[in-house]
Design a binder for these strands. Sequence first.
DNA 1: CATCAAATGTTATGTTGTAACATCGGGCCG
DNA 2: CGGCCCGATGTTACAACATAACATTTGATG
Lengths: 154, 154
Amino acid sequence: MAAHHHHHEPKGKALTHAAQTTLEKAGEQWTSMRASVFEALAGFDKPASAYDIAEAVSKAEDRRVAANSVYRILDLFVSANLARRVESSNAYVANAHPDCLHDCIFLVCDKCGQTTHIDDDRITGTVRHAAEAAGFSPVRPVIEVRGTCADCEE
Amino acid sequence: MAAHHHHHEPKGKALTHAAQTTLEKAGEQWTSMRASVFEALAGFDKPASAYDIAEAVSKAEDRRVAANSVYRILDLFVSANLARRVESSNAYVANAHPDCLHDCIFLVCDKCGQTTHIDDDRITGTVRHAAEAAGFSPVRPVIEVRGTCADCEE
DNA sequence: CATCAAATGTTATGTTGTAACATCGGGCCG
DNA sequence: CGGCCCGATGTTACAACATAACATTTGATG
């Protein structure tokens, strides 16, 4: 895979539609509950915890939704590449390109929580390679950088 | 800093002594409670949670030690480089080289939990650099690889 | 319609992490 | 000595994150 390629970021309906397509291609159903969870997840501008999402869905649908159910769906989303988990924040983000498999690098601002991500297959490749050289396989790199984002430094 | 250098792993008393020296050099006290927590931490052969350590210390001293107190000491250890936190496992490991500052790469086996670490300043350097190029600073890379270790594959 | 499986709901509980305040003990100064 | 301060630890309570077990609903299918 090339080290770089361009993306334009799908938003709103386009993003949801891409998610639905990918999930269905994986042989899973796009239920209304899953749609709600995805909407809620995509509606956050920074990583959201399962409880954040449960609360958002609860509000949006005016009924109680247990974190439990949200976790199930988030796990499914992560396994289908519709969402990713940010390990160092115990939180989830929608994946703008569910059809496109990357190891990704998250940059997490400790001040404001804003999280951006970088795709750099050269970096992730060297990490993968190092782990494989140590006898690991299969391998799932978790690469996150905690720090302060440009907006929060003065 | 060189990309590679050799370490022999201090164990037992030598490791504890290195920890004590480093902590005192940082202007902190090496109390008996801190020594106990360090001993417990170093006694695990894989990353241990704060609760694991609280239990180990409780047993060793035959008195109840609250997780709370352990967290405080672990936080201190991490900030003084005596220990490291494995983010994707919510657990801590003793640092064999507290006097030696590295970003490190953890390889965590999903099957057995064994966790090894690699120091590779070339890899961590590229990650740091990428984050800085994105406007982040200061920067603390979290690089962990989940997978299956050589012993657990058949 | 009957049945079955997948999805979701519900309740309970386990694990991880923090907050707030009390107590202890050692150094320091009058 | 006695009083004071401060860092470390103890104690209690609670918040946040995550999973287990089982009940119920829903929708596809024979």
